[in-house]
Amino acid sequence: MSMDEQTIDTEVVKKFLYVNRKAPYGTIYALESLEVVLISAAFDQDVSLAFLDDGVYQLVDGQDTKAIGMKNFSPTYRALGDYEITKLFVEKESLDERGLTEDDLMEIMYEDEDDDWAEKPSIRIVSRTEMAAVMADQDVVLSF
């Protein structure tokens, strides 16, 4: 290991959680969150995303914004794996309340560098209790 790598290894990595609770397009929150997430990826921190309440709609498959004249940014969630953001926690109760299931969500995969680039799903469906535990396990929580 070179000196440079050692220096990087000893830098403090903090756990960041981005909490997404709003549907896309009606307000700017979802897009702003995604942009901040992409920018923050440059800092090599331990980033997770939480999707609960109407935020689960950000990951719904089949979004088509042509007729509302806005950019469809849903394909960008599928790029997060390239940025080593591979933990997208989605709350099951929020899906249930909205009549949604995991099958209604986009397929979001990442390639696991440590496992011969095997494709693995980034979306992890968690219960409300598990989501609360994810939130309590962070250094920094950013809400959108």
Binding site: D54, R128, A132, M135, A136
Partner: peptide, 12 residues
Amino acid sequence: RTAFGSCLKHLA
């Protein structure tokens, strides 16, 4: 809004 209610359901 649901924020207050949702908050109460996610307390550790």
